[in-house]
Amino acid sequence: MEIKRLLSDLQDFYALSWRGLAGIVRRPFYYKDALIQMDYAGAGSLLIVVIVDLFVGMALSLQLSAELSNLGMKMYIGMIVGISVVRELGPVVTALVFTGRVGAGMASELGTMVLGHQVDTIRVFGFDPVKKLVTPRVVSSLIMLPALTIIGVAVSLLGGYYINVFVSHQSGTFYWSSIRNILTTENVLAGAIKPFVFGYLIAVICCYTGLSTRGGAVGLRQSTTMAVVLSIVMIIISDFLLTRVLLYVLGFSV
């Protein structure tokens, strides 16, 4: 019985994921709903993304400085910080922050709408709840997470610069020169594809768990927790898989 239920849930999840994405190119379009979601997800998350990525960049630079100074290779801080942040840490850390703020918000908002019969009201009014509620959130995540990731990466590199110059007393010009050198098409692509995948995963997982809410306040707590946990796990797993595929496709030797 449990296996049957799990398979049924998986089927529903895949159906919602597909319909949520297909809604982007199928009428009717709910532009206003998407703009509201983009404002909440993008502008609303900017400050926390900046703070978290700044300190991640600074901590990374500090750790590298401590180790590389023993080897007399502190000039490589810029290069390693650049590669780590652009290809890996920037997209992943920003996605985790996005999950905690936006994903949890999506799940709890939709869960509350289910429990308050607002989703039923939307269905009775003749709207498709997937198009009306899920697609705008998918659009918002697909646009705003990459945008936030670009800002997050830039801020992380700035944090690395600050530690490199004012704590490790290295040349700032050489730091930026190293960063410019690693910003190759391959490195940028290796990091730039991830936020789109993460954004889509966060949106569909959190919308699905939110819309599956049953059983009052306890059910809402469970679905919100499930949304965040599942999103984090899927981000980490998909990050590994994407890294493996992208390194192979982009011609990196491992």
Partner: peptide, 16 residues
Amino acid sequence: VRMKFSIVFQEGALFD
């Protein structure tokens, strides 16, 4: 079929 009805849910179900 649904357009033939108007429903008022318990507690109103207004959009918060």
